[in-house]
Design a protein around this nucleic acid. Structure first.
Lengths: 337, 337
DNA sequence: TTGTAGGCGTTATCAC
DNA sequence: GTGATAACGCCTACAA
């Protein structure tokens, strides 16, 4: 049209002109399911390649009301397991055509704003892999329909309007409990994370219940206020210090590896004891450091790849169910218990 | 206009109607620098609040050619230091109005595609906090002007067309060298990461040069192919095994904490030796785990917050200079050296 | 300070 | 299979 290009960016129009087709045919060439002759597509792609054209996703979002963007909300940057999740999620989402907007919700107040922000970007879903999102935030987000879909990854929530993609924590904790029992430990203490309403609380309850059934005894527990090895270190130190040696546990069953690492360090460096001979430890997640010679943690590995693929399925609307909470991982037995 | 709202989303029009002003005044109310009477703004904001309206960023991006989005490219998910950087960057960017698009470029081939993807989302800049981006990728990205700005965070590049926001690695390495010398170590070995062209290579060279100047001796070095503690563990084991005990170093100066952690573990668990008495170790980054009782790493802390703020300055176009590479951190001395 | 065109680059949908 | 029209919701001018 305009012989002299003043504009920087090349649009479908430019490609159309060069390829000798209409603008709409150009766009069709970039969609997998469009009805277009292979000849047209070839011409278009050739011209596009020559011009360095790629479709503008912003414009597409505006017109289609689908952004192909997912926002990932995280409130915990001290657990290396989060890195693993991010790696897996971003890769798999990207291969399925979704971009990932990373949102830091370390400030609790910020989570609500983050949801608003997500809506402003028209994200197709908000995925929470944080650990401490309060139920109220979930409710607010779901209630006001801030985002199209609210998905909890690697965590369960009973909240309707929320979709959980997580492993079967109950089965997982049971397998840990069974392992602990079979190894002959008899005075476990459960090291729990922050007691938000839903969340991993289930892990604690499952273990306590299982132990009760099998051994007829109550299990003591202690609560760490953040999933942070350093905080866990302090809390475990404090907890053990408050006990008579005769009351000491022979194993600390931790809600995840971050807590377990702090526990191992405390046992070793605060009390000069040996893991597992004096006190054994189990974790959850099979974070890379769990295999580290310092820890050799017995832990539980969630099938993150499968879960991420499940998440994609949810985004594509392939599942009717509210939740995909029945992924099954496996116990990884190392020397710590 | 339409009495019956069939559309889901509320736009500026709806707010305008309720507030009794024009659509454009509504938009102005959401801009800090717009000329609008405080009375109008009040009315608009009230109406917006009532309706739950927030400006649509997608539409804004399309119209303004500014997305207020930055893409963050990462090719290393095994170094927990990345988590720290992400936390800081996302938080500070967000407080300045930028969202963060997380892009996984673990597949080297993927980095180029990722840049294209970034352009498709009209990101205002691509920020690389990866470690191994090859020069060719940088050149391609810069050359084809895939993105408006290409910024390297916490890493230096001499490549024109890229902007580095990093600390003064030379000064940093010098302070480590001086510390090593002052502690009386005399047979250092440098443990380097992947030898890409730019990058941290400077750290190795600076240390070698400084040592040469001070002691008149060459420093041996070994190369680890990935910034991963486990890989470092193996490489250090292999390297030390290949030496006669008489040739052994008394200190391993590592390019970063990830390598240092692997080194400490190898010294301890492969050879049954003690750090620092048998072999000392230094790191770089002051990752959270560096303070862990297992490591107590002497390391160097970069001023990440200041650097992140520098990055924001670059985004805002406040700096003329190509690079902001003169941030100064500080040596953190612990027990490992 | 406020209102008005014109345009940003797509997609949905209908005609041909 | 292809071309065309009307949104999508906002921003940048500029005019009132």
């Amino acid at each position: 049209m305009k012989p002299d290009k003043l504009r920087e960016s090349i649009t479908a129009n430019d490609v159309a002109e060069l390829a000798g087709v209409s603008r709409w045919t150009v766009n069709r060439a970039f969609k997998t399911d469009a009805s277009i002759s292979s000849e047209s597509r070839r011409k278009v792609l050739e011209a596009a390649n020559q011009l360095g054209y790629t479709p503008d996703l912003i414009a597409a979002s505006l017109a289609s009301d689908r952004s192909n963007l997912v926002s990932l909300l995280i409130d915990d940057f001290s657990n290396p397991h989060k890195l693993v999740m991010m790696e897996r999620l971003t890769r798999i989402l990207r291969h399925s055509g979704w971009g990932t907007l990373l949102v830091n919700t370390l400030d609790a107040d910020d989570a609500a704003l983050a949801l608003v922000n997500a809506r402003q970007h028209r994200v197709d879903a908000a995925v929470l892999i944080g650990s401490q999102f309060s139920e109220s935030i979930l409710a607010a987000a779901g209630g006001a329909r801030q985002v199209k879909k609210l998905i909890l990854f690697a965590r369960y929530s009973a909240d309707p309007g929320t979709i959980s993609v997580c492993c079967d924590d109950e089965a997982a904790m049971e397998s840990i409990a069974d392992h602990v029992i079979s190894r002959g430990y008899c005075r476990p203490v459960f090291v729990a994370g922050p007691q938000t309403q839903s969340a991993h609380v289930m892990r604690k309850e499952t273990f306590l219940k299982r132990w009760q059934e099998a051994r007829g005894e109550q299990v003591a527990f202690t609560v760490v206020e953040t999933y942070d090895p350093q905080i866990a270190y302090r809390q475990v130190t404090r907890y053990l210090s408050g006990l008579n040696r005769s009351e000491w546990p022979d194993i600390l069953v931790c809600e995840n590896d971050a807590l377990a690492m702090g526990a191992v360090d405390a046992i070793r460096y605060e009390f000069g004891l040996h893991v597992p001979d004096d006190i054994a430890v189990t974790g959850f997640d099979d974070t890379p450091v769990a295999a580290n010679p310092n820890y050799r943690l017995t832990t539980y590995r969630q099938p993150i790849t499968a879960m991420a693929e499940g998440l994609v399925g949810v985004l594509k609307g392939e599942y009717d169910a509210d939740s995909l909470s029945h992924f099954v991982g496996r116990l990884v037995v190392r020397e710590s218990a």
